[in-house]
């Protein structure tokens, strides 16, 4: 919709306002992480003392490590299961219970976290009563919960990619003697790898970010980073959380910027090759 008529003044001012709205709070929060004073009202001069306080805070460090571990494991399993689900929905035309399957994939996306969390907790409690597993709730149960809701997102991403992919590529491979499983590994997976990677990243962030489901499914022992942050910020401003936020948001933004720069560059490269080739 690029018109020769550029955006009007009204639109421009809304844009400016919108982006200010999105970014000013984050920037202010980051700025305060360098404030020497513990009070937000007073600018006590530049200092990195909240960062060293953070590094000495074992609770936060442990929670962060636990969160990273859960995120990495659950994202990996969610990618595997979500990809399989996407394959089943787009490449296995008919099977019993397909209708229910479609619903099961879509449902976690619209389910309020409180309900997902509550229901999983009740499941774990019932399972424990019935078969004695899980013995206690903690990292494992959180991981299972995260796999469950993240795999739905990945299934949707993978499904969209597969639906737009020419199915005759896989048929050609099968025609040349590839067994269904070989075809999946030789052709399908390499071609949907970018979607799987972005799915993995999404699952990783969702897991890293999740408070509600983790609170429900975690036990006494395990506290993830969001749970620790939540219990701290419920009481109001705590400057070491500002420092933590600066580190997290800074790292993530940098990572995303680098990733998109790489993607952009490779796109340019292929289009340049195309023109010369």
């Amino acid at each position: 919709m690029s018109s020769h008529r550029g955006p009007s003044t009204f639109i421009l001012s809304v844009l400016c306002f919108g982006f200010a709205f999105l970014y000013v709070p984050i920037l202010v929060m980051m700025a305060y992480s360098f404030n020497d004073s513990a009070l937000a009202t007073v600018w006590g001069g530049f200092s990195t003392r909240w960062y060293s306080a953070l590094l000495n805070n074992e609770q936060i460090i442990n929670a962060a490590l636990l969160s990273l571990k859960i995120a990495a494991v659950s994202a990996t399993f969610a990618t595997i299961l979500g990809t399989l689900a996407g394959l089943a929905l787009t490449r296995m035309r008919r099977f019993r219970g397909r209708f229910l399957f479609t619903g099961l994939i879509a449902a976690p996306l619209v389910m309020p976290e409180v309900i997902t969390g509550l229901s999983l907790l009740l499941l774990f409690v019932s399972l424990q009563q019935l078969i004695g597993w899980p013995v206690s709730r903690g990292a494992t149960t959180i991981t299972i919960a995260h796999i469950t809701f993240a795999m739905a997102y990945i299934a949707v991403i993978v499904q969209a990619r597969l639906a737009s992919m020419d199915e005759s590529l896989e048929e050609a491979a099968m025609d040349l003697g590839g067994r269904p499983m070989q075809v999946t590994f030789d052709i399908t997976l390499p071609l949907i790898a970018p979607s799987m990677i972005s799915g993995w990243l999404l699952a990783f962030t969702l897991s890293l970010d999740d408070l509600v489901i983790a609170s429900f499914t975690s036990g006494a022992g395990a506290s993830t980073l969001p749970m620790v942050i939540f219990s701290k910020i419920k009481l109001g401003v705590t400057p070491d959380i500002n420092a933590l936020a600066t580190i997290i948001i800074g790292t993530l933004s940098l990572g995303i910027l680098i990733a998109s720069w790489i993607i952009l560059r490779s796109q340019r490269k292929t289009s340049a090759q195309r023109q010369s080739g």
Binding site: V28, L211, I233, A245
Partner: peptide, 13 residues
């Protein structure tokens, strides 16, 4: 892509 919880926290600040 950045933390939801921390963005809410930004408004507390």
């Amino acid at each position: 892509w950045t933390s939801f919880l921390l963005r809410v926290y930004a408004w507390i600040v």
